[in-house]
Simulated assay, not measured.
Amino acid sequence: MIRAVLFDLDGVIRHFDHDPGLEARYALPDGTIARTAFAAPLIDSVTTGRLTREEWITRVGEMIGSAPAAREWGRTPFAADLDMLALVDGLRSRGVTCAILTNGTDTITAELRDSGIGKHFDRVFNSAEIGHAKPDIRAFRHVAAVLSVPPEEILFIDDSPSKLRGACAGPRHEHARLHQRRRRPHCAHRCRPPRVPRVASPRQHPRDYGEHATRCPQ
């Protein structure tokens, strides 16, 4: 039985409203900023707390040759996915612990507080504070330990297949149940649906976010 659901933040709980004309205004090739910002080792440094968000944006500006473009990109607004928050509220009303695990920066706490997203969750786990980012299995082990929930009783929802690897990478007793908002599950093993309490919400059930929720064999 699923006792806790662990949600990714960006692309699942919140979505950014990117300006498609930003780079053109600064005479930058399309996609330059994102490719630079999310490339290793820079992204690894900010999501494990070795750089602040401000330092990250500054370095992006230096690397692309346009500090103003990087600063404007860094101010991109976001909005919460209200259907997902309704799902979270429904699950919590049934006694299921709901938490966020995000590869984030040092400003995540303030962002979730100011946007009101944080109040919908029992816990928020930020890689910049943990020191390990998904798909590092140590991030998932940390969450399970703090929640005091066996990994096999945690459902993980993420929009990125690559982030799911860590939750399926451990030995038998550390495998987690997984789910993702994609048409097909990304799991290296044959999977089966987990049992999750049904809730009333705009999308009804976590399984509605893909063909089925998946569980790595134990």
Rank of each mutant, 00 (worst) to 15 (best):
R184C: 04
I137S: 12
G31H: 09
T76R: 03
E72T: 05
P202L: 07
D17C: 10
P185I: 13
R207I: 09
M1A: 12
M63N: 08
G166P: 01
G131Q: 05
R92N: 11
G104L: 03
R203L: 15
G131K: 02
D159K: 03
I13R: 04
G31E: 08
P77C: 06
C216I: 14
A169K: 01
R75I: 00
D159W: 03
A34E: 14
R75V: 00
M63V: 06
C168K: 07
I57P: 00
P194H: 06
Q204L: 12
R207T: 11
S115W: 01
R92M: 05
T109R: 14
F156N: 04
A39K: 13
R53E: 12
G104T: 01
I43L: 15
G61C: 00
P29Y: 13
P151A: 08
H132C: 13
T107E: 02
D8W: 09
D89S: 10
Y26I: 00
W73Q: 01
G49M: 12
E62V: 11
P161F: 02
R53L: 09
L155I: 06
G11W: 12
A99N: 03
A99I: 01
A69H: 05
L101P: 00
D114R: 00
A24D: 14
A24I: 09
P194N: 07
D159Y: 02
R177W: 05
R165C: 08
R172K: 15
S162L: 11
G74V: 03
T58M: 08
R141N: 12
I117M: 04
G11Q: 01
T52E: 05
V12A: 04
V149C: 06
E72R: 10
E174I: 04
L112R: 03
T48V: 09
I33P: 06
D83R: 13
V199Y: 10
V196K: 04
P185C: 10
Q180W: 14
L6P: 05
R198I: 05
R195S: 14
P77I: 10
A67T: 04
E152C: 07
E152F: 00
R190L: 13
I33L: 14
D208V: 01
T47R: 13
D114K: 00
P202T: 11
R198P: 05
R123K: 09
H15V: 12
V88T: 06
C187Y: 03
W56P: 10
